[in-house]
Nucleic acid binder design. Structure first.
Lengths: 105, 105
DNA sequence: AGACTATTTGGCTATTCTGCCAACCAACTG
DNA sequence: CAGTTGGTTGGCAGAATAGCCAAATAGTCT
């Protein structure tokens, strides 16, 4: 595998890794319903605002969300909605896993 | 957010996190073309076989692949093919990112 | 200007993840 | 049965992540 191909996989992994955290997954889910400001997200998540802000910057760095300052608040929104379709597939995996546990204990 | 909802996000994140590594992404991509044994994957990846084996066990733990021993070799295959559709979306994100870099340097 | 609010950044510790080596296990071969 | 091959597991050192606090920044309001 040449270096350029490896780089391509690295970039892809970076995008996916950004989704691989419960809090960031929640944020993406929430943003799928519309724009949210950081303080709204912090209230829903219940973590320190600096923690929420860092999660948002991971999502932004991966190109998954965009932000936009209006007055004192910063509003975030989803940049690439197709992500959401993927969540259905993740649910399929989880359902299959539940069956697997039931069948082979 | 109640504890049950958090757990649900944790499970989803675990599945996605399993995909968030260049090597594992490569493996999934390769398995989308058919079954592969560990030694074939090791040759393509060029890492120690124990490293490849551990990546496979992460994927298996997440319910993304299944394995099956035949003779000396262990063959792996994708368990939930819908994953592949997602990769198209990841590419969309990367293309959008390239545009972003071009526009705002 | 000074006080106040919303958010980001820096820094730190604790935890998790990676990848290599060595040891081990399982199935085949002579 | 001894030797060989293909894979997994345990252990460890180094890298990357997460989350909190404190400090810095940027807009608003008086």
């Amino acid at each position: 595998m040449d270096e350029k191909t490896k780089d391509r996989y690295r970039e892809r992994a970076r995008v996916i890794k950004a989704l691989g955290h419960p809090t960031r997954l929640f944020i993406v889910d929430e943003l799928s319903r519309g724009e949210r400001c950081v303080c709204e997200l912090r209230d829903m998540i219940g973590a320190d605002i600096s923690t929420v802000s860092k999660h948002l910057s991971v999502l932004k760095g991966a190109g998954l969300v965009d932000d936009d300052k209006r007055g004192l608040q910063v509003w975030y929104r989803l940049r690439v909605p197709c992500i959401l379709k993927f969540f259905g597939c993740v649910e399929d995996v989880l359902r299959a896993n539940e069956r697997r546990v039931a069948v082979k204990p």
